[in-house]
């Protein structure tokens, strides 16, 4: 795995980020929600390593802790997307015919909306909150994942080992779970790692629009949104969350590309 340059860089970027996210809550950080109006828009200093925001809150603590929400968002939405998309894609590709038509036409309906807009709509129905935002993005991912899984399943299902299984009288469930799934796992893994990065991006976008993570707890997207009004007061305010966010997404993207090469997967980019 480390022979692949992309994968190596991806892991190199993700490793520290994930480590930070995991250990941040137990680090002796300043209180991320403690305001100090007198000390707003401070530049980086020994006391505030990353500077402070418009309320004088410590940006170092907020940035380190803000990753939690974003990462959770990426993982959570991807997990939901996989949970729904993989079975739909498998069934669609394997059974073909009317099952395929029905499922895919249903999925197409959701593909008629831009991702962010669909997430916004779903949130409009359920109300903006972290849980619903994750669910919404998971639902947005579902048809896209289903399509990829379906594509791989279609090319696998004509392999004669599937026929061999049918010839000995295996049940459909067995064929789907034990014969097909292991053989489409590579594209699923690749897609998942790219989706996580994408999920983080959408998640922060929703927070940016005020529909995801709720204040005052720190989140990268929300921090960037807040910083927007104070750009000229302090560029640091936006820089730190923006940088951390980008590095994380970059890490997942490169890991995904690396995995694609390692696992020898062909996925259409769309």
């Amino acid at each position: 795995m480390l022979q692949n340059r992309n994968a190596r860089i991806g892991l190199g970027l993700l490793g520290p980020m994930i480590a930070i996210v995991i250990v941040a809550p137990v680090l002796p950080l300043p209180d991320p929600t403690a305001t100090d109006a007198a000390n707003a828009f401070a530049s980086p200093s020994a006391e505030h390593w990353f500077g402070t925001d418009h309320h004088g809150r410590d940006l170092f603590a907020r940035t380190l802790l803000g990753g939690r929400v974003s990462l959770l968002f990426g993982l959570g939405s991807t997990a939901i997307g996989l949970l729904l998309g993989v079975p739909i894609g498998l069934a669609s590709g394997y059974f073909g015919g009317n099952v395929d038509e029905g499922l895919m036409r249903f999925m197409d309906l959701f593909l008629a909306f831009p991702s962010l807009l669909l997430a916004l709509l779903i949130l409009a129905v359920f109300g903006g909150s972290m849980q619903y935002a994750i669910l919404a993005v998971g639902l947005v991912f579902t048809p896209r994942i289903a399509r990829i899984v379906r594509g791989s399943t279609l090319s696998e299902r004509n392999e004669t080992y599937i026929e061999a299984a049918k010839a000995r009288g295996e049940s459909h469930t067995h064929i789907l779970v034990h014969e097909l799934l292991p053989n489409v796992k590579s594209p699923i893994i690749v897609e998942a790692s790219i989706r996580i990065g994408f999920g983080i991006l959408i998640g922060t976008s929703l927070s940016f629009l005020g529909l995801g993570a709720q204040p005052p707890n720190p989140d990268w997207g929300y921090m960037i949104a807040e910083s927007r009004d104070y750009l000229y007061n302090s560029p640091w305010f936006m820089l730190w969350p923006g940088l951390f966010l980008s590095i994380t997404v970059l890490g997942f993207n490169m890991l995904g590309d690396g995995l694609r090469d390692i696992l020898n997967v062909e996925i259409e980019e769309q």
Binding site: G197, L201, T204, S205, F208, G221, I224, S227, R228, L231, Y232, P235, M238, G242, L245, S246, I247, V249, L250, N253, M254
Partner: peptide
């Protein structure tokens, strides 16, 4: 391109505003 794909559009937007549309 890797960087472009990883940095959210609105961050770029804000950066542009900061650099080219402001002080």
């Amino acid at each position: 391109t890797y960087v472009w794909l990883a940095v959210p559009g609105y961050v770029f937007g804000i950066l542009f505003i900061l650099l080219l549309g402001g002080p």
